[in-house]
Amino acid sequence: MNAKRILSTASTTLAATCLLITAQASYAQATLPDSIKVPDGHKIALETVGVGEITYECRDKANANGETEWTFAGPKAVLNDRNGKQVGTYFGPPATWQANDGSKITGTQLAVAPSGPGNLPYQLVKANPAEGKGAMNGISYIQRVALKGGVAPTSECSSANKGKSEVVKYQADYIFWAPN
């Protein structure tokens, strides 16, 4: 009788866990703007939390003679798993996600969508083929979600301080997808 009860409890717990994992993956896509949703036929391969900084530089505005603006110069972040253990890094340009095993990918931005005031936008990136063997092999898309901070500085950017760099902190979840 006890063995039956233990098996029944274990089966129920396993089924609930599988349902929860499926619901979380579905929920994540359901709440995102359509433009950054990953196409059908893909599954989550790796979930990371990027914690780091983005550098902006005060530069001439493109096609606006004599005007300046804060321009994205590059990111630098640690990629942690959901338990807080470092599993890789994110840096650029070009935007590069590198696993601790040395495998890495770059990609092409497909879409962005607003994520809230003071936060970088959501982003969908089509991954290029991985370099090196490891965790980044087979990745097809990267989503940037759950954003905190990272937008351009609010300090003055003028011809007087052209060339000045400022660093802002940010955090974002990077979700790596692979074909089913």
Results as ranks from 00 to 15, higher is better:
L124C: 04
G52D: 07
N119D: 07
K61F: 05
N65H: 11
R59T: 04
L14C: 08
E156R: 15
S115M: 03
G132F: 02
I142T: 06
M1R: 03
A111N: 12
A99S: 15
A45Q: 01
E69K: 14
R59F: 03
G74Q: 05
G88F: 01
N100L: 13
T89P: 10
Q109T: 08
P75K: 15
Q143K: 12
G150H: 06
T106F: 10
V87A: 12
Y27T: 11
P121K: 13
L79Y: 09
Y27N: 13
N80H: 14
N137F: 00
G118L: 11
G50N: 01
P179H: 10
S155N: 09
N63M: 09
P153A: 10
T71P: 00
W70C: 09
N100A: 15
R144M: 00
L46N: 02
F176G: 03
V112L: 08
N128L: 03
N65F: 02
T12S: 05
R144W: 05
L120S: 04
E67W: 08
D81W: 11
G116F: 12
I105C: 13
G134E: 01
P75A: 13
N100S: 14
L120G: 04
W97C: 10
I36Q: 02
D60G: 02
K162E: 09
S26W: 06
V78Q: 13
A62W: 10
K164R: 05
I44G: 07
P94S: 00
T17W: 10
L32T: 09
G138C: 11
A99G: 14
N180H: 11
G50W: 01
I21N: 15
K169I: 08
A77K: 07
A146Y: 07
D34S: 12
E131N: 05
G84C: 14
C157D: 02
Q86A: 15
A16V: 05
A113S: 10
K4C: 08
Y90G: 11
G102A: 01
F91S: 02
G107H: 04
Y141M: 08
D40Y: 15
S159Y: 07
S35D: 09
T17S: 10
